[in-house]
């Protein structure tokens, strides 16, 4: 219950092809994250699955049956919108009860379900308030509550955390992951933030201009990015991308080295450069180093590293963890 399969699904708005034909399989119970830069078609893809947009071609199967022509209400999917889309004139209770009321459920059953959902989501104290009287995080919970009471076969989230401040975002991330573990329901989650993708996903789908660049588990994408786009998109701080002579030396058009895969030293090293900015976080030290003939590189040292602006340091890339890409930007498998 809750598998979603896209077969040659494409979407055009007029002449503009936002999503070229693509195939994708989402297994039952999986937490799938669509990640990509803003405007790459993540929301459109999610709305196609929800049935809020009609596909231009292709077939969408939900639980093995063709759902391409089904209206949104019939697909048994619940969506949490970026703006939360709460009904402003209804109390929290009525908001959460709305889908059940529309389904014609009995009053007493609705009350029991709403109370249970409110308790799960820590909303019991605000149950009679209007959305306008709630904080961002509380509104977020109401939107999730409205989704879970329906007991859908899959949840769709469209950038649900982008309106929250950083601290709250971290908490909600954990809450949503926990929710996935307790409910064990398929979740499709859209975000432009690769940190959210890496921390929450069972499977990440990296999108770029409507095309799927790579599908895989967070660690697969981290260890073996299929191309330069995925390599530079996944990981924080992002991977150093180097072209030219140093890349040719390694037998590639482009090489990529993650900041954490440099050996930093005060003297010696394969490349030597001048520290531009140094960020000391205690647990880590991030250095921006200008290396002549290579470019500006970001390097991470664990713990404290004694380097300041203007110092010269040595950088030695770990050859085992260097990513090599060909002229088309595709990974060269060694």
């Amino acid at each position: 219950m809750g598998s979603i399969t896209l077969k040659k699904v494409a979407k055009r708005f007029g002449d503009v092809e936002v999503i070229p034909p693509l195939d994708l399989a989402i297994e039952d119970g999986e937490f799938v994250v669509f990640v990509g830069p803003s405007g790459c078609g993540k929301s459109t893809l999610l709305r196609l699955i929800a049935g809020l947009e009609d596909v231009s071609e292709g077939v969408i199967e939900i639980d093995g049956t063709d759902a391409t022509e089904q209206p949104p209400a019939k697909r048994r999917l619940a969506m949490v919108f970026q703006s939360y889309a709460l009904y402003p004139h209804m109390s929290v209770r009525k908001n959460i009860a709305f889908p059940l009321k529309m389904a014609g459920m009995e009053k007493s059953a609705i009350k029991a379900k709403v109370d249970h959902a409110a308790k799960t989501l820590n909303l019991s104290d605000y149950i009679d308030r209007r959305p306008g009287q709630l904080s961002g995080g509380q509104r977020q919970r109401v939107a999730i509550g409205r989704a879970i009471v329906r007991e859908p076969s899959a949840f769709l989230f469209d950038e649900p955390l982008s309106n929250l401040d950083a601290a709250l975002r971290g908490n909600m991330r954990i809450e949503i992951s926990e929710l996935h573990q307790t409910l064990d329901t398929t979740m499709v989650y859209v975000t432009h933030d690769q940190v959210e993708a890496m921390t929450m996903a069972d499977k990440i789908v990296v999108l770029n201009a409507g095309r799927i660049e790579q599908v895989g588990s967070p660690m697969e994408l981290y260890r073996e990015p299929a191309n330069v786009f995925v390599a530079s998109f996944i990981g924080s701080p992002s991977m150093n991308i180097i072209t030219g002579a140093p890349a040719a030396e390694a037998g590639a058009t482009t090489i990529g080295i993650r900041p954490e895969h440099f050996q930093l030293s005060t003297d010696g090293g394969q490349w030597r450069g001048v520290v531009g900015v140094s960020e000391h976080l205690g647990s880590d030290t991030f250095l921006r180093v200008d290396v002549e003939g290579v470019g500006t590189l970001t390097a991470r040292a664990e713990g404290e590293f004694p380097a300041r602006h203007g110092d010269t340091v040595g950088l030695t890339p770990d050859p085992e963890r260097m990513h090599r890409f060909d002229a088309a930007g595709l990974r060269i498998v060694r």
Partner: peptide
Amino acid sequence: EQIEAAEMDGANAFSRFFHI
């Protein structure tokens, strides 16, 4: 998005008009 949310919540055109 409110109308779309109501649509996903199973509200038909009449319910959407009167409730939203």
